[in-house]
């Protein structure tokens, strides 16, 4: 039952129905267009090998439940994540507020986690500009402020989707090199005082 070896954990965060699952589906589907589509029963977890330069980085992409009723548990999900793709719906301003919430959580709990801000459904606003509720520059400013990269994607047309995930893999590959020496120490320490651990202990 040996599963594929995964190098980095990437979590998808975002409100319900902003299109986290579609984003992953689009990305994985795109890759399998040439061959037969792998019969996945769920899109909640995907292990995806990506060619970065001469190396192959395997991202383990974790989909998460975005509903507010599970908000308290969300930190269990991003424990040990190396990257988080925080999604918001370009046509829904409330989803951006929720994105801010997750960014704050990540900054507090996972300092080694790189954040990618991702506005979804860009195809909708291309059809009708008035649907846009989140200004591109506002989002860009926010991304700069938190030191994150900002993408606007469309799972429908596939716009910017590959670029996003490729960037995640590339960044991981670059930083992985830096962490290599201190990794063992960091990981063990993290385990002890991580949010997840305390979560299970306190309640």
């Amino acid at each position: 039952m040996s599963a594929i070896r995964v190098d980095a954990k990437v979590v998808m965060l975002g409100k319900e129905s902003v299109g986290k699952t579609s984003l992953v589906e689009r990305y994985v589907h795109h890759r399998f267009l040439v061959g037969p589509y792998q019969n996945t029963i769920g899109a909640a977890f995907v292990a995806k090998p990506i060619q970065v330069g001469e190396k192959v980085v395997t991202l383990g992409i974790w989909d998460t439940a975005g509903s507010e009723r599970y908000e308290a548990m969300s930190r269990i999900y991003y424990r040990g994540a190396r990257a988080a793709i925080v999604c918001y719906d370009l046509t829904d301003s409330s989803s951006f507020q929720r994105a801010r919430f997750w960014v704050k959580e990540l900054q507090n709990c996972e300092e080694h986690c790189k954040i990618y801000l991702c506005g979804t459904k860009s195809d909708l606003i291309e059809g009708d500009r008035s649907l846009r509720q989140i200004d591109y520059h506002d989002a860009q400013d926010f991304a700069d402020e938190i030191g994150a990269l900002h993408f606007e994607t469309s799972s429908k047309t596939g716009n910017n989707v590959d670029e996003l995930f490729h960037k995640v893999a590339e960044d991981y590959n670059n930083t992985a090199f830096q962490y290599m020496t201190e990794e063992t120490g960091v990981d063990l320490g993290q385990k002890k005082d991580s949010c997840f651990y305390s979560c299970c202990h306190n309640n």
Partner: peptide
Amino acid sequence: MTGEDGYYFTNLCCAVAFIEK
């Protein structure tokens, strides 16, 4: 930490946390 098993395990932890709260 990373693999598929880890993902489902994390979900189980979430489920238990949810049930408690």
